[in-house]
Amino acid sequence: MIVAEQKSLEEIRRIIAPYEKVLLLGCGTCVTVCGAGGEREVAFLNSALRVAQAKSDDGVHNFSEYTVKRQCDFEFLDVLVDKVNEVDTILSLGCGIGVQVVAERFPDIPILPGVNTSFMGMAKEWGVWDERCAACGDCRLAETAGICPITRCTKGILNGPCAGTKNGKCEANKDMDCAWILIYKRLERLHQLEKMRRYYPPRNFRVIPRPRRIVMKADIEQGEDNG
């Protein structure tokens, strides 16, 4: 899932400053799971903003809140049409995709981001999320025992550990496991160390040129066959 972190109250107050009526818009998928922008966080942010406003005595904002099932799909945004007409801006607590889909759907109103979209990852334990995929477009997990060196090695290198690893940890962060030590141990356990002995050539950064787009080939071909 996509993992995000809510921006600081201070930054949110700064970016909404020019607008009077603000719709706080949550999203019911990834950011709900990682506790950054779901219904609960929207309600909490609404209260926090009101309190901050009352304390600072510059009560110019009028907040409303709503959470859609998914911000990253036009079909879930239709319910917002009336609400959008009544506000000056939308502060989206969806990920960067959500923010942009809302912007694309409602071209006449400013959209502001309320979270920093951080990475794609997993909940390691409650409250701790770890990055797991860099969406590189050229998955090599078959060769690395299901552990991604592009994401989990600070240098994203492909041919084994650098010399900076110590106690199984990374030179960049002593709390982080060295991805290549993990890969070695798991390949050894699976009797697949020959995969580590292979040479891996430099990555192709144009596997999918930026900005990336995928067109579903199977359906089109099937459609053509049927037609």
Partner: peptide, 12 residues
């Protein structure tokens, strides 16, 4: 402190 993966890389 964990030499085996370093030796694999050395050989590469």
């Amino acid at each position: 402190d964990f030499i085996e993966p370093q030796l694999i890389k050395f050989e590469k």
